[in-house]
Write a protein that binds this DNA or RNA. Structure first.
Lengths: 339, 339
DNA sequence: CCCGTCCATGGAAGCCCTTCCATGGTTTTT
DNA sequence: AAAAACCATGGAAGGGCTTCCATGGACGGG
């Protein structure tokens, strides 16, 4: 039988209220009493029962994270940053990883209705109007990370600018026939990255060729930001034969990896035959020398968590939006270092 | 104010016990009553308060996972399998990711003493005798995954055999000068993989050359199973000049990636100049054509979770040990397909 | 020396469920 | 027809904490 606050109180010859005050570091306590209670706590090896505390405090000290865990390593790196901050705030992280987009709502429902978490980090997914309404209604603390909705707090990356600069970098490297491999166009990052790509092409007075824009073919429940999509997209571009592009902007590093494979299988070399730039800067990119636009994952995760904890503390309801910038990381695949 | 079981009971004109029975699908309930209560639950949009349920049931419906999240993608893939099963069992997953080995105990303490989780999955880490004792004492449900202790349940991979077969495969490909890049030798997988490597070398009547065995140099808190360690290890082997090995067995895929980079930087090619085989079969290995020993991550995760749920259900205390086998995945880097 | 303050403290009530026991009604048995 | 067995149900107790309110002692001021 676990030791409870009553055992401690009895053995210390004080009331349970006093023990509770000691545990919670209340100021209204005589130092001698505090030491005595602390001694007993130590002797009995007492640990407060977190669940009971949660019930009484009406706080769970845990935050939930709804994240499409399985579609890419970008998320893994975000998760890293999140976990770090969660520990820092002495909270627990409950992971709701979505491997099938339809689960998003199930998880939202759980988090909102069951009151198991104090707040929610909602990563890279779309949120339905119905749940936005529910969230506003309950004034439930939530922060969108790498996602956006105008009524909710969000940390997002400047995708358009990132795509613009990625494409511009390829242009500066001297390429004229530039293609883009994108995710499915129903996702916001896909749309904005495409905008940036197109803008760069047009501002440089290059011709926008529809054949040079391919969307990730993928399984119905995925988002196209994966290896296969990159591979298949590249295949499609290679089928253009002589008209094939000289350089590729892939909307994610993992797509770039797939594309690289297709390029290799075609007996071509990077960057000599086809240059490529990715987006994300996931860990493996460094190893394969992929030029890419780095998303500041740690920073994004940190900002999101800080904001979330702030909201949990004080339920203010102004909408907070933070946009972070990407950084061009030049490696081998863009051909920049060839000159 | 959230709606409670009392509100439901009152509105439905029944007692709280009855409502509770409906929620929990008790058999002892007249169907007409059940329907009536269900109706009210729906009307009021009632959701049981999970924390209160946990307290009353003395179950949290959540399981914890202590995992060295940040040292490799192998863990990410295990986590994938774990999460899938956790959802299946309608539980929650609390993630305790260890980025600094010293945190292991902190997390163990939390999980054991605070009673926030019903059980624990302990992945790829070492557990101190003190905690083994505590666990046995409390009969706390825990399963070690990719780790081992003779008094606790564990799912482990046959590392020795895997390493043996990996090395043998290189031998079969015709290489004679074979090196191994390993993690730090204080970790069990490192030790057993080394055993397998050595056994293969000796059984093939090749000479075991000490210079061909390098341990991952790495940060003090890491385990050497990472990219840098692979990179540095390979550099060391390349410094051997003419005496350099013809083929490498890397104890993890991510080390192989690092090694590959070092090979590339030295102007050498794989597998023509130096062949390499990894261990793990992480997702990216397929893309870079890395020959490797696949660890059945999904299966391991599934087995561990199944066992854990079984233990949570019925506290039997026999020790369960399951050893799974690796699978040779032949791709490009071993040179097998060159012939 | 008495009264008003202020502190440290005890403990009841409350958080929201589950579960056990008691109850009254119904059905079966003899 | 009475006794026995059975059911569905209500609600108190209990799970382990926090917090508010009441209390009594110490202390300063008049």
């Amino acid at each position: 039988m676990p030791v409870t606050i009553y055992d401690v109180a009895q053995k210390a010859g004080v009331g349970i209220g006093t023990v509770s005050r000691v545990i919670n570091n209340s100021s209204q306590i005589k130092d001698s009493t505090k030491q005595k209670v602390l001694g007993v706590i130590n002797d009995l090896n007492y640990q407060p029962h977190i669940v009971a505390q949660s019930l009484a405090r009406r706080k769970t000290s845990s935050i939930g994270c709804i994240i499409p865990f399985f579609t890419g390593y970008f998320f893994v790196e975000l998760l890293r940053g999140i976990q770090r901050k969660v520990s820092f705030y002495k909270h627990e992280l409950i992971l709701y990883s979505v491997d099938d987009v339809s689960k998003t709502e199930t998880f939202l429902k759980k988090a909102l209705d069951e009151r198991r978490v104090d707040g929610l980090l909602f990563v890279s997914l779309d949120i339905s109007p119905e749940y936005v309404r529910k969230i506003k209604e309950k004034n439930f603390p939530i922060v969108l990370l790498d996602s956006y909705h105008d009524e909710l707090d969000s940390i997002k990356v400047n995708n358009e600018d990132g795509a613009f600069r990625a494409t511009t970098h390829l242009i500066n490297c001297g390429y004229k026939k530039i293609a883009m491999i994108n995710g499915i166009m129903s996702s916001l990052p896909s749309i904005t990255r495409f905008e940036g790509f197109k803008k760069a092409i047009i501002e440089a007075d290059l011709e926008y060729d529809e054949r040079y824009f391919v969307q990730g073919d993928c399984a119905p429940d995925a988002d196209g930001f994966n290896k296969e999509a990159g591979y298949l997209g590249m295949k499609k571009l290679l089928e253009l034969g002589k008209a094939r592009p000289e350089a590729i902007f892939a909307a994610s590093d993992i797509q770039a990896v797939g594309a690289l494979r297709a390029i290799g299988e075609a007996g071509l070399k990077t960057p000599e035959d086809i240059a490529i730039i990715g987006f994300d800067d996931i860990e493996l990119s460094e190893h394969i020398g992929l030029t890419t636009m780095r998303q500041p994952t740690m920073r994004m995760a940190g900002l999101a968590m800080t904001r979330l904890m702030e909201k949990i503390g004080s339920k203010n309801d102004d909408v907070f939006v933070k946009r972070v910038e990407t950084e061009l990381i030049i490696r081998d695949t863009c051909g920049f270092n060839l000159k």
